[in-house]
Amino acid sequence: MGVSEPLLTADGVTKLYPGGRVGCRDVSFNLYPGEVLGIVGESGSGKSTLLNCLSAKMEPTAGSISFNTRTSGLTDIFQLSEPERRLLMRTDWGIVHQNPRDGLRMGVSAGGNVGERLMAIGARHYGNIRQEALDWLTRVEIAEDRIDDRPRDFSGGMQQRLQIARILVSNPRLVFMDEPTGGLDVSVQARLLDLLRGLVRSLGLAAVVVTHDLAVVRLLADRLMVMKDGEVVESGLTDQVLDDPHHPYTQLLVSAVLQV
C-alpha cells in the first residue's frame, strides 16, 4: 500500500490575517493522484482561506505546501519562481470559481475561453484549437452551436460547465473548486454534480472541493476535512465522517442537515 507519491502535501499550513485573526491553523494532509478531498465547515471556518493557500493565491504565514511537479517531484510551491508557479496554475492546475465571473472571460466567446490555455502553451493552429474546444464543450454538455457565443449570455449552470471545460482542456492533474454548485438552482446543481463526478472519475483527477453542502461532498469527495474556527476538527473517509461523526461540531453539522 501507499506506493504512489502524494500529488499535493500541506504541512502545518497556517494563515493569520492582519490583526492576528486566524484564517486557518496548522492544516496538514497528503492528497494522492486521483483523490478528491472535500473541505466542509460553516462560513468563516477558513475553508476558502485554506483553498487560497493551497492554490498559491495566498502565501501562508507558516507551514508549507508542496506539489509533485512533472519535472522535479515534490516542490514547495512558494519556492517556485512566479513564472513557474503561474505556468503550473494554467497547465497542471485548474480552479473552478464559485462566481463564473472570476473564472471566465465574459467578453470572449465560449470557444476562445476554452482555447486560451491551449494557446497559452503555444497552440497556433486555429482549426485544431477549435476542434478541441468543440470536443470539450460537448463533454460538458454545451451545444456545439454555442461555441461562438459569449458566456455572459449563458445560464449560471452553463457558465460553470464552461469554466470546467476551460480548465480541463489543459489536462490538469489537480483541480480546486470553491463552492462549485453555489448559487445554482437545485436541479442545475444536480446536473453539474453528475457531470463533475463523471469527469473526475473518468479522468482520474485529483481535486480539492470546498463547500458547505454536505450532499456535494457525499457525492464527489473520497475524504473529508471538517473545519471550525480555522482548524481541522475531524477528517477521514467521507461516508465515515458523515455517518459516524466523532467531533461535537461535526455531529452538529450532520444533524443540522438531517433536520432541514
Binding site: A190, D194, L237, T238
Partner: peptide, 24 residues
Amino acid sequence: PREILAVRRETMGYVSQFLRVIPR
C-alpha cells in the same frame, strides 16, 4: 481513506438495507 476505498473497490462489497447510490 484511499486504502479503504481500494479495499471497497477490489475486495469488499456491501449490500445495505437501503440503496444509497448516485442519484440520477
